[in-house]
Deep mutational scan, measured.
Amino acid sequence: GTLHLNGVTVKVPSLEKAIKAAKKFAKKYNLEVQVHGNTVHVH
């Protein structure tokens, strides 16, 4: 999967790991997580 954090793109081995990391990051910075196919966006 691919993880987008505020314009930074990170390749992640699995989508589940990407979503987990995204949710952790989003919670910390009070951001929103959106999943588009195998790409996770945090903004």
Rank of each mutant, 00 (worst) to 15 (best):
F25H: 04
N6R: 04
N38L: 07
T9A: 11
K27P: 02
A21T: 06
A22I: 15
K11H: 12
N38G: 05
G1K: 06
K20C: 15
P13G: 12
V33C: 03
A22P: 00
G37W: 07
K23S: 04
V35I: 13
K20V: 08
N30I: 06
I19L: 09
N6M: 15
V42W: 05
K24T: 05
T9C: 15
S14L: 07
G7K: 07
A26V: 04
K17M: 13
E32I: 14
T39F: 10
S14D: 13
V10Q: 04
N6T: 06
N6F: 15
L31M: 11
A21R: 07
H41C: 15
Y29F: 09
A22R: 00
L3C: 11
V35A: 04
G1Q: 11
H36V: 14
T2E: 08
K20P: 00
N30W: 11
A26K: 04
L5G: 02
V8D: 03
V12Y: 15
H43Q: 08
A18V: 06
V10R: 04
L15T: 03
L15W: 07
H4Y: 12
S14F: 08
H36K: 09
H36D: 11
H36F: 11
K27C: 07
K20S: 08
L3E: 01
G37T: 03
V33D: 00
G1W: 14
K23D: 02
K11C: 15
Y29G: 01
S14E: 04
P13D: 13
I19C: 12
G1I: 15
K28G: 02
E16A: 12
L15P: 01
Q34E: 13
N6S: 08
F25S: 01
E16T: 09
K17H: 11
P13V: 13
H43K: 11
L31F: 08
K23P: 00
V42R: 03
G1R: 02
N38E: 06
H36G: 03
V8W: 14
I19T: 03
Y29T: 01
I19K: 02
N38R: 03
K24R: 12
H4K: 09
V8M: 11
K27R: 08
G37D: 05
F25M: 07
N38C: 00
K24D: 09
V40M: 05
N6V: 11
K23E: 10
Q34P: 01
L3Q: 04
V8N: 06
G1V: 15
K11S: 10
H36T: 13
E16V: 09
N30G: 14
A18K: 01
Y29C: 05
K11I: 11
K27I: 07
K24W: 12
K11W: 15
L5C: 15
I19F: 03
V35C: 14
E32P: 02
H43W: 14
A21Y: 14
L5Y: 15
K28H: 05
A26C: 07
K27V: 05
A22E: 00
H43V: 13
P13R: 10
H43Y: 14
A21K: 10
S14W: 11
